[in-house]
């Protein structure tokens, strides 16, 4: 019994290690954190950002084990909603295909200078798409 338990613990811990390092390498590859640090001129606080990511991931993974409920008024859910949205937006913008497709497209139609407009079209598209997805029933 003890043996079985310890093997289970070992396997689960290894599993967690792999998932955690996978998450970190994913975030590292898309270069999201350096970019955000660069934009806000806070490259010195990279350690803090690492900590924030580790805490977020660990707490979210522990949530099913130790369920917590805050019983806050409903407008408090705006905060997680907004910040999850900000993250997903950064993620969407950072994905390699976006960064690779736009230059090709802009060059094809000869509007390398209007790339800002194309970005805007994409941003508005994402927002409208997301709103439609949530508000229109049936998705």
């Amino acid at each position: 019994m003890l043996l079985k338990t310890s093997i289970a613990i070992l396997i689960a811990f290894a599993n967690g290690l792999m998932v955690g390092s996978g998450l970190v390498s994913f975030l590292a590859i898309i270069g999201l954190v350096p970019r955000l640090a660069e934009v806000t001129c806070t490259e010195r606080n990279l350690r803090l950002y690492e900590l924030a990511m580790v805490c977020g991931a660990t707490l979210a993974a522990l949530e099913p084990v130790f369920p917590v409920i805050f019983y806050l008024p409903d407008y408090c859910s705006i905060i997680p909603g907004l910040f999850i949205g900000l993250f997903v937006g950064c993620l969407a913008a950072a994905l390699a295909e976006v960064l690779n497709v736009l230059p090709v497209m802009a060059r094809r139609v000869g509007l390398a200078n209007d790339i800002r407009l194309l970005v805007l079209a994409m941003v508005v598209g994402k927002v409208i798409g997301s709103l439609v997805y949530w508000i229109v029933p049936g998705f």
Partner: peptide, 18 residues
């Protein structure tokens, strides 16, 4: 919806931030 609408706007701001 009270959470999902700010979420959607957040996507836009997140991209602009990036």
């Amino acid at each position: 919806l009270i959470m999902q609408i700010p979420y959607s706007l957040g996507i836009g701001f997140g991209m602009l931030l990036f």
